[in-house]
């Protein structure tokens, strides 16, 4: 069963790689979905460069959001920052009620069209999952363990670095995984404000009534999401196994 799962992941990865390198090979598969002799493969920008751009934007936003959210979570779980805890939680929750499209559209006058408003929207959306999971992970470290670390003469910083963060790492990583997957999907919507992501392919398909474009854009994003999700799950599993031993 596990072998089968691994085999289909590898097949998915290979398929995605070949599709991005030589999309023209797949033209016959997509051709029945087009009408009026429209091209079967998106030709406005190369799919490979759009994919790389999409990934770069997602990666940068997830990295920035994770760094800030983790820093904040560490801060509010220290005794000195404890008074900020309930409030920061409420704020992060309220932030999630802003629809991505609204964030994109409203930041355009400040940042212009393109990647910048998309980055900001992804960044804002990425904060909550990491923050919530880091809070859960850090406050889930049992008081006995913390006390033992304190008893062995560790300073607060040492306890954080050597005990609390390693113990909370799998849960924090799960938060980063959620954040990355959400960003990957939201980056598609970024093309409504002219960001160079795979959403461009989907929107081009919607505007010209070409289902082949919509399908290939959607499929690439879905394949990326499945592969990235699995990679994170694999690392999480390894971390948990190391903690257990």
């Amino acid at each position: 069963m596990r072998l089968l799962g691994a085999a289909w992941r590898i097949a998915l990865l290979l398929g995605l790689g070949v599709f991005l390198a030589r999309p023209d090979l797949f033209a016959p598969i997509f051709a029945p979905l087009t009408r009026f002799d429209a091209p079967a493969i998106y030709d406005g920008t190369s799919l490979l460069s759009l994919t790389l751009n999409h990934l770069a934007l997602t990666f940068a936003a997830t990295l920035a959001a994770s760094a800030l959210a983790l820093g904040l979570a560490v801060l509010v779980t220290r005794p000195a920052g404890a008074e900020f805890l309930p409030f920061s939680r409420a704020l992060a929750n309220a932030g999630q009620t802003f629809p991505p499209v609204a964030v994109l559209a409203l930041t355009v006058p400040l940042l212009g069209f393109g990647a910048a408003p998309t980055f900001l929207a992804l960044f804002l959306y990425g904060l909550l999952p990491v923050f919530e999971n880091a809070l859960a992970g850090l406050s889930g470290v049992s008081p006995g363990v913390s006390e033992a670390a304190r008893g062995s003469g560790m300073t607060g910083l040492q306890r954080l670095r050597l005990v609390e963060l390693p113990l909370a790492a799998p849960v924090i990583l799960a938060g980063i995984r959620l954040s990355a997957i959400v960003s990957l999907g939201t980056a598609t919507v970024g093309s409504t404000v002219a960001a160079k992501t795979l959403g461009e392919v989907v929107i081009a398909g919607l505007l010209s009534g070409n289902t082949a474009f919509v399908l290939q854009g959607g499929l690439i994003v879905a394949a990326l999401a499945i592969l990235i999700n699995d990679a994170f799950l694999w690392v999480e599993g390894r971390l948990r196994a190391r903690l257990a031993s």
Binding site: G185, T188, V214
Partner: peptide, 18 residues
């Protein structure tokens, strides 16, 4: 359902048109 969730919203909207 997990895989369904990974398809971005605009694409899923578009794919259902057909």
């Amino acid at each position: 359902l997990n895989i369904l969730q990974t398809v971005p919203s605009i694409a899923l909207f578009g794919l259902l048109i057909g």
